[in-house]
Design a protein around this nucleic acid. Structure first.
Length: 566
RNA sequence: UGGGGCGUAGCUCAACUGGCAGAGCGACGGACUCUGACUCCGUAGGUUCUAGGUUCGACCCCUAGCGCCCCAGCCA
């Protein structure tokens, strides 16, 4: 849990709630709900909604229900039901009471439909889907009444009962609200309330029903039945609010929740629609819903994001009604800020270059005591073996250094982090002229102290070649090569998948880690000094070795300097 | 050419409902440093979508435009 779990920043929804409380509305009670459909994994956009709804309950001493909006069994399943609960819990929230399902209300929903029929406000319509569309009219032209609109109450009651009894085939009839086919709001042109779906096994209700209620009908009633006070959803449902209110105004429910809409989150260099994420998974563009490149909660967890960092992010982006696309750097800042404080330091060499310290005794090994965190003594220390052969990162040596380079160069000196100062005496190359090994010498007087009379500017990380543990390291980059894949696709007449970043995953094998990392457990996070933050994957590599996922790099001002030099 | 929304710094959001337009992130510069990290200090960046109007005074109120998003599932 985060260190400073205060209440979230204010926003227009909190203003509304403040006013409601001041006015004594709902007896000062605040009840929200998070209503996902179990047809996919939760993503960072859902996290925004979760933090909002559960955060409201937390800050106003109210309640927040977890309710599955499970009215379309064709697309839903238990894997999603379970992953969603998992992800909400992981984010650090607990729902009030039991887990709710819209399907819990199927019987009541049916009863309210009968009530609407009896009031002459709903009718069974025999139009096909195509005919219904044709009768609906267009954005600029009104629709026409269905020929079945004026059926008698008795006939509607009989037909609806027989729909439930399974007498009619899929698509043969639907139950529709009787509102206004000429409404400028298309959602009010006699929307469908129930459709027939034979042969699907619902994950909660099995084969009990062959008619299923629609979202627009189910949602307001579920909210009212649960005594929700503020029903918060995203902007695209704004047009549906009159229908939400119409349903509640015309049936006998105990209360009338207020629907409030806010804008969904867009994040640069990724996509957020469940349809697209499903496609990336199903068509194998990523390894699964929890692929660390995915903007899913499961993916971010596997990548090494912490719950606190995700919550912090959600607090910082705010809640408004404006369309928005948040920069990836904000998300990255949130993880770095958390991990900088909480992740123990370790050393790992990702692109090994052998270094032999020729003046160090062949059979000697020193155990160096190293702080686990430079600013936090309470994190303790660990032993780090040092010997004659070590590995450094190939990037930390240049035969011909670029300007401002302050790592190891031929004939130059550098500080080995937590250890001695060494000087490069000889560069050994293979037949192709590639540097394959360095011969160095160390200054025994530089352990824990700076050398006399000269300033060593560079500090590089290293591991003992004799003691290192080997591992696979996966470096992740943005999933897409453009900030807004959807916009780019639309503009260039391509598919969003055409903008997938081919280098979003770089796998490094034969990386060498300091021995202490050999004892890490799955999910553990460390800062590999000078490289970034890394998380041990629960999976093992093909040869049974450890896999470390890079959560995020360290901020890298050298990369900028280097780029400017080019 | 219907209906519903939204326009404040590069990005995301504030601005006590009419009283000197701010913050976080990012960018740039510097200090410090056994992580080119962290931390610290500083700088730049605004016609508040535009044009009128009301007012002593407008991001806020009024009028007219402009731009962008959403809606024609028996999806949610």
């Amino acid at each position: 849990m985060g260190s400073n779990e205060t209440s979230a920043p204010s926003n227009f929804i909190r203003h509304i709630i403040d006013e409601d409380i001041a006015a004594g509305k709902n007896g000062g009670r605040v009840a929200t709900r998070f209503p996902p459909e179990p047809n996919g994994y939760l993503h960072i956009g859902h996290a925004k909604s979760i933090c909002l709804n559960f955060g409201l309950a937390r800050d106003y001493k109210g309640t927040c229900n977890l309710r599955f909006d499970d009215t379309n069994p064709h697309k839903e399943n238990m894997e999603f039901v379970e992953s969603i609960q998992n992800d909400v819990r992981w984010l650090g929230f607990s729902w009030s009471g039991k887990v709710y399902y819209a399907s819990d209300y199927f019987e009541q929903l049916y009863g309210f439909a009968v009530e609407l029929i009896e009031k002459g406000l709903a009718y069974v319509c025999d139009l096909t889907a195509e005919e219904t569309r044709a009768y609906r009219g267009t954005l600029t032209e009104p629709g026409r009444d269905s020929p079945y609109r004026s059926r008698s109450v008795a006939e509607n009651l009989d037909l609806f009962q027989r729909m439930r009894a399974g007498e009619f085939a899929d698509g043969a009839r639907v139950l529709r609200a009787r509102i206004d086919m000429a409404s400028p709001n298309i959602n009010l042109r006699d929307p469908t309330l129930y459709r027939i779906r034979h042969g699907v096994i619902h994950h909660q209700t099995g084969a009990e029903w062959c008619i299923y209620p629609m979202y627009d009908y189910t949602h307001p009633i579920s909210d009212a039945l649960e005594g929700i006070t503020h029903s918060i959803c995203t902007l695209e449902f704004e047009d549906h609010r009159p229908l939400y209110d119409w349903v509640l105004d015309n049936i006998s429910v105990p209360c009338h929740p207020q629907q409030i809409e806010f804008s969904r989150l867009n994040l640069q260099y990724t996509v957020m629609s469940k349809r697209k994420l499903t496609q990336l998974v199903d068509e194998g563009f990523v390894e699964g819903w929890d692929d660390p490149r995915m903007p899913t909660i499961a993916g971010m967890r596997r990548r090494g994001y912490t719950p606190a960092s995700v919550r912090d992010f959600c607090d910082r982006i705010g809640i408004t009604k404006s369309d928005n696309t948040v920069e990836m750097s904000l998300l990255e800042n949130c993880v770095r800020e958390d991990l900088n404080v909480n992740a123990p330091r370790r050393m790992a060499v990702l692109r090994p270059l052998k270094v032999v310290i020729e003046n160090y005794p062949e059979d000697q090994v020193e155990q160096l005591d190293c702080a686990n965190h430079p600013q936090d003594e309470s994190m303790g220390s660990r032993q780090l073996p040092f010997c004659r052969e070590i590995y450094i990162d190939a990037e930390d040596f240049r035969e011909v250094p670029p300007p401002k380079y302050k790592r190891l160069v031929a004939g130059g000196e550098v500080r080995l982090r937590n250890s001695y100062v060494i000087r490069c005496d000889q560069v050994i190359k293979n037949a192709q002229g590639e540097v394959i090994e360095l011969r160095c010498s160390y200054d025994p007087a530089t352990l824990g102290v700076n050398p006399e009379g000269r300033k060593i500017k560079g500090v590089i990380h290293w591991v003992s070649a004799r003691h290192a543990v080997e591992a696979e390291v996966r470096l992740y980059d943005r999933l897409f090569s453009v900030p807004s894949p959807d916009a780019a696709a639309a503009k260039e007449g391509k598919d969003y998948k055409d903008f997938l970043n081919a280098d979003s995953l770089r796998t490094l094998t034969r990386c060498y880690l300091e021995p202490a990392l050999g004892e890490a457990g799955a999910g553990e996070l460390f800062q590999f000094e000078r490289e970034g933050y890394f998380c041990l994957d629960a999976q093992r590599s093909a040869n049974g070795g450890a896999i470390w996922n890079r959560t995020v790099t360290l901020r890298d001002s050298w990369a900028k300097i280097e780029q400017q030099g080019d």
